[in-house]
């Protein structure tokens, strides 16, 4: 008796469930995702069991179209699994292998089921392969999308964290820049600084570039733009924290910063205090003089 591929596949999945699951578990156990220590065997087995039963239900009730509506619960649980893998930091291979490692056990079972029926075996292998490939690809898509989401969020967090505007004194702001300045960040930096100037009614803003690893013509241009915008708002800018090597590079490149610059933030702060009519006095000298 010869059966079509779908029939063989349905029968195999229903009747040979235990053997397929055992083989799948064995193959998962040997896989790298377990060795990385990010997931326990028990959890992996639970996921495998759930996925398998959903796969069986989908194929038995719905047929072979992996994009069909009978596969929705399976696709959703696979998406959940790969999303959590992405967050836990699994490699793409580990994530894809979770689905692809099911292929071999199923093919084995199909071979056992259709021992004498070559054409039925070939058809069922083709059908099962098609479904599993589709599912594997979907898993990867979700995995990559989640990874990109994570990366995007991190980038946003870094951008927010790395542009704080600090109030050093009444009317004196500091902007410690950390990391490379690109156009997108310059925009954020500029907006933050200008808003802070308005909020704090600042007269002087100190831009500290100790944490900027390199200053090329582009970065210098971004800095100058920020300084110019602050000046338009009526605040003076002082650039501080230019390291000796960077100063040399800038001169060799012919980059000119036509702003007041100081070697350290402390120097710049002293200048800012002086400009706003303040002075730092050492208290100890006064007290020793009193004692005399």
């Amino acid at each position: 008796m010869s059966m079509d591929g779908a029939g063989v596949l349905k029968r195999t999945l229903t009747e040979d469930e235990a053997a397929i699951l055992d083989a799948w578990n064995a193959s998962l156990q040997g896989g790298t995702s377990l060795q990385s220590g990010r997931i326990r065997m028990a959890e992996l087995q639970t996921q495998a069991k759930a996925v398998f039963s959903q796969l069986r239900n989908a194929i038995v009730s719905g047929g072979l179209d992996a994009d069909g509506e009978h596969f929705v619960p399976l696709r959703e649980s696979l998406a959940d699994i790969s999303r959590s893998r992405a967050i836990q930091g699994f490699t793409p291979t580990d994530t894809a292998n979770f689905v692809f490692s099911l292929k071999e056990p199923i093919f084995e079972a199909l071979r056992r089921m259709s021992a004498a029926d070559d054409s039925g075996f070939a058809a069922s292998v083709l059908a099962a392969g098609k479904i599993l490939d589709r599912l594997g690809l979907q898993t990867m898509e979700v995995f990559l999308a989640s990874r990109e989401e994570v990366i995007g969020r991190q980038g946003q967090e870094i951008a927010e964290l790395s542009t704080p505007v600090v109030r050093l004194w009444d009317g004196i702001l500091a902007l410690p820049l950390i990391g490379t300045l690109d156009s997108a960040r310059t925009g954020v930096v500029m907006e933050n600084l200008l808003q802070a100037i308005v909020d704090e009614e600042a007269e002087i803003a100190i831009i500290d570039i100790t944490g900027v690893p390199t200053v090329d013509t582009l970065v210098a241009q971004h800095l100058l733009k920020t300084v110019a915008a602050a000046r338009l708002m009526g605040a003076d800018c002082i650039v501080s924290g230019i390291r000796p090597q960077i100063a040399q590079t800038m001169v060799h490149l012919g980059v000119e910063l036509n702003v007041v610059s100081k070697a350290t933030l402390a120097d710049a702060f002293a200048v800012a205090l002086r400009r706003t009519g303040r002075k730092i006095v050492r208290q100890q000298t006064a007290s020793t003089e009193e004692r005399r």
Partner: peptide, 16 residues
């Protein structure tokens, strides 16, 4: 001058 205006002027290359 508003911050947005300052940024616009700088982007336009008008540093006044």
């Amino acid at each position: 001058m508003r911050p947005a205006v300052a940024i616009t002027l700088v982007e336009l290359g008008l540093e006044l």
